[in-house]
Simulated assay, not measured.
Amino acid sequence: MKKILMISHSSRGGGAEIIFLKTADALKKNTLKIIFNSKEGFTVKKAETKKFDIEIINNFILNTSVVKVIVRFIFWNSVSIFKLMKIIQKEKFDYIYSGSIVNYIGGIAAILTRKKHVWHIHEMDNVGYQWFNPKFNFLVRYILKYSTVIFVSDGVKNSWLKRLSLKESDLEYEIIYNPIKKLNKKKDYFNAKNKKITIGCAGGFCKNKNQKFLIETFIELQKKYDNIFLKLAGDEVVNEGKRLIENKISKKKYSLYDYTDISIFFSKIDILVVPSYSEAWPLVAIEAASFGLIPVLTTEGSINELLKESENAFYINPYNSTELYEVLENIIINYDRLKSSISNNNKKLLEKCEFNKKFEKRINSIF
């Protein structure tokens, strides 16, 4: 049994935060303590319900502003690192685990206390969307070379090797695909036919998720196709969605949810669109595929390692205003045929993957 100190931010409950909790569940046979940067947010609330040993140490993650990062380091993060070091030394932790590329203070504390550091990297470096300013490349490069790194896909690994001018031989790393949520669905869902076609998107409303792109495309599509409907779910979707839709879509043709159970949401839609500017390994896409939906996914990610174009999903460039329209139009026109082939392909593919079983085994092998 190992003693592991786990560090995460807590906000809207994005993919990295969900996998952080799943990692903690996978490691629960060990002695765990979890450090969050805030007492608010999705992740800390979930961790509390699971009865984990939790402590709050205020700190700030990396971002694109050099001034903010430096000022916050001087006045906050340096103190937070000192607090972490005291906890590590007092409670004699064997490992420090950091979830997400932007959580860096755990790596510094591990280096200073000469403890083993595991860094779980979920994000993909994209030209159009940067997680932190390039001036901090030196810091991330140094911590990565000290750590055992978990990348969620080959694409994620390759994107950071390229940005940080690293070779594979510079790192000790593992590629571990994330587990997926077990969903409740009707047994005959893979063979369902539907004359009304509902297009959906799930995720907290923000610039990166690019819901505006889907809304604008739907507004144009509805002029030609009367049998389509739109449903959006996620934090701030109701307020922001209404603002973008205004009177451009009939109230009978769209629904907005701040939150809904994903199984219930999937049961109401036929096509899931993930139009993000950066989406390294979208769990929602794999879960949609397991549910029998047709996934339409951003090219700015690495999920194509698993879901192949036209066989398991369709891909669109989030910077190209016509691609999403053309892909959705093709699905609308050929819905029954594409639904049958893609959902059955995905059923066969995902039955072989055993994501959850492999995830727990491989995570534990690192510690």
Rank of each mutant, 00 (worst) to 15 (best):
G292C: 04
R362D: 15
A288R: 01
T260C: 11
N330P: 00
E329P: 05
F291H: 07
K339I: 02
E354W: 01
E326R: 11
Y335A: 09
I269D: 02
E309V: 00
W281N: 12
K348V: 12
G292K: 03
I316Q: 05
S263I: 09
E311S: 15
F266C: 09
S276Y: 07
T260Y: 01
A280R: 01
S365N: 15
V274W: 01
K308F: 00
N330K: 13
K308W: 00
A285C: 13
D270T: 09
A288W: 05
N317H: 02
L306V: 15
S310T: 13
K268S: 13
S290T: 14
S310N: 15
K347C: 10
R337Q: 14
L307E: 02
F266V: 06
V273P: 14
D270N: 15
I331D: 09
D270S: 12
T322L: 08
I271N: 04
W281C: 11
E351I: 10
I303P: 09
R337Y: 00
N334A: 11
A289R: 01
N356H: 07
E279Y: 07
Y335K: 10
I264V: 15
A280Y: 02
K352H: 03
E300P: 02
L297I: 14
F355M: 07
E287R: 05
N304C: 13
A313Q: 08
Y335R: 10
P282E: 05
I271G: 06
I286A: 09
I333S: 09
V274Y: 01
E351N: 15
K268A: 07
E351D: 14
S267R: 12
R337G: 10
I342D: 01
E311N: 14
A280I: 03
F359W: 06
L293G: 08
L272W: 03
I262L: 12
I271L: 06
K352E: 14
L328K: 04
S365Q: 12
L349I: 06
A288F: 05
S276G: 14
A280L: 03
F291P: 12
T299C: 08
S276V: 08
D258T: 11
S263L: 06
I269Y: 03
V296N: 06
S302I: 03
E323I: 07
N334G: 13
N356L: 07
K339V: 01
K308I: 05
E300Y: 06
D261H: 11
V327R: 04
I333Y: 00
Y325F: 15
L297M: 02
G292T: 06
N330H: 10
R362L: 13
P275D: 08
E360R: 09
L283H: 01
W281R: 12
T322V: 09
K339W: 00
L306T: 12
I271S: 05
Y325E: 03
I262P: 04
K268C: 07
E323S: 13
I342G: 03
S278M: 08
A285T: 04
P275K: 07
N344G: 10
